[in-house]
Nucleic acid binder design. Structure first.
Length: 435
RNA sequence: GACCCCUUCGUCUAGUGGCCUAGGACUCCAGGUUUUCAUCCUGGCAACACGGGUUCGAGUCCCGUAGGGGUCGCCA
């Protein structure tokens, strides 16, 4: 039997990372077994299921490189089939009509639970069972004539020949219902596997309040799709050895449900950031540059390509996320850059700094050639003859030309800026803070 | 409340009865390198929720307790 898994989100515009992780596991499982990974858009909620929301969902999948087989199935197109199935269950006496609770809303269709104990083998949690007396009949068609999730979901899984349902923990109770539905419908019951939930930094379930758990947020925060994929894959699963940074083929090769954790996992942004940095470092230069240009563009910075490329090289290994790029390079492009207040106070506004900067400026002016090697030598000579410490000279110079205390190595930095900018900036800094 | 499920360093995890004085990664700390920050290198802190069994031997099996979570909709 060929493995077929699916991702069945409702397109609300915000895909939670818990759902995305489920999608990743489904994808990994299908690919590992040489099977198919399908997409089903559960768009029966007409209010929230806008074309934009569907596009957002598709974009997220492309971003994470979750390619699916076959055309996506849109649940909204299946209403007739769902209702037909309900009629069939009704005619067989497996369901009945009732004005539930006597609300006067009219009659809905209710599925009759078989009245026997239920047991199934969960791919992650092991044997799960439930006594008949703890399971109740449930609504499958509302009194307004629309099918309920349980019916639609099961019917569509049957339609798509889904063999393995890998989904969140919150569905285990539903599984007993769904299994009963499969049997009533005369279809083969798929294998189930329930993933533990992802919780926030407080160890609590993500709520609407934790506005940072949607896939789009991670993209905005500057994470790479590949890194998030890798991180999410490892959140609740491990290959069994010490590998952590893994390529998609490696993960596909190593993936198995047996190695999935059955307890909740907490997202650790620090580790994600670290992992993202590793992926940034592995990026081909051209890709890195393209991302950088994109970021500058978004920030409204008009960068001269040659100059910009030299800057990108300088910050290459320091960048942890895409969002670091503009803050780390902004001062290269704007002579009117902002100053870090603390840096100014601690390193600049001290006795002798004005004099030091004036002398350094003179040294730079007198240089025949202004490049990395010459500024390096000149400044070292200056330190020696002036009797000042390296820090007392380098720090003010750095802040004078960049506004911040940290950044690329000073001499390559000066070299890329060029003499003209360096002199102008020292002058401006002196004027602003030291006169 | 009822029914299910979960519990190894702060976090993600390895561990399927002896190889565990519990390993790795992130974070954090210290030292080294460096003009600074970052990187890098070295080292360090840090966990089997608790209590009973079973066993020659338990993080690993069983039973309780505690804590956490899920579900209990004409939402999905």
């Amino acid at each position: 039997m060929k493995v077929r898994t699916r991702f069945a989100p409702s397109p609300t515009g915000n895909v939670h990372i818990g759902n995305m992780r489920a999608a990743i596991y489904n994808w990994l499982f299908a690919r590992h077994h040489g099977g198919q990974f399908l997409l089903r858009v559960e768009d029966t909620d007409r209010e929230r299921s806008t074309p934009e929301a569907i596009q957002t969902l598709l974009d997220a999948m492309v971003w994470l490189k979750l390619d699916f087989d076959e055309e996506p199935l849109y649940q909204s197109t299946r209403m007739e089939a769902h209702l037909e199935a309900a009629e069939m269950l009704l005619s067989k006496g497996l369901a009945y009509k009732e004005d539930k609770g006597g609300t006067g809303q009219g009659e809905c269709v209710i599925f009759r639970m078989p009245g026997t104990d239920s047991i199934f083998e969960d791919g992650i949690k092991g044997t799960l069972s439930k006594k008949a007396e703890n399971m109740q009949d449930f609504v499958i068609v509302r009194s307004n004539g629309t099918p309920v999730f349980h019916l639609a979901n099961v019917l569509d899984d049957i339609e798509q020949n889904v063999t393995h349902v890998i989904r969140g923990d919150d569905h285990v109770e539903n599984t007993f219902r769904h299994i009963a539905l499969y049997k009533a419908l005369g279809a083969d019951v798929p294998k189930y596997a329930h993933l533990p939930m992802i919780v926030n930094a407080q160890g609590k379930p993500y709520s609407k309040r934790d506005g940072d758990a949607f896939v789009g947020d991670f993209r905005e925060k500057g994470f790479l799709g590949e890194a998030l994929f890798n991180y999410l894959a490892l959140l609740g699963w491990s290959p069994g050895d010490d590998r952590e940074i893994m390529s998609m083929p490696e993960m596909v090769e190593a993936f198995s449900l047996e190695r999935c954790q059955s307890s909740a996992a907490q997202v650790d942004l620090k580790k994600l950031t670290w992992m993202n940095g590793e992926y940034m470092l592995k990026l081909p230069d051209e890709d890195f540059e393209m991302i950088c240009f994109g970021e500058l563009d978004k920030a409204g910075i008009d960068a001269e390509p040659e100059y910009a490329r030299r800057i990108f090289k300088l910050v290459r290994e320091r960048v942890k996320t895409v969002a670091d790029i503009v803050p780390m390079t902004g001062y290269f492009f704007a002579d009117e850059f902002e100053y870090d207040e603390q840096a100014v106070r601690k390193k600049l506004q001290k006795d002798g700094v004005a004099d030091t900067l004036a002398k350094v400026k003179a040294v730079f002016e007198s240089l025949e050639i202004f490049d990395e090697a010459s500024t390096d030598k000149a400044l070292h000579d200056f330190v020696e003859t002036s009797g000042l410490g390296f820090g007392a000279v380098m720090a003010p110079v750095r802040i004078a030309v960049s506004g911040v205390q940290s950044g690329p190595d000073l001499f390559p930095l000066l070299n890329v800026l060029g003499r003209e900018r360096v002199l102008k900036r020292i002058e401006r800094t002196t004027g602003l803070f030291l006169s």
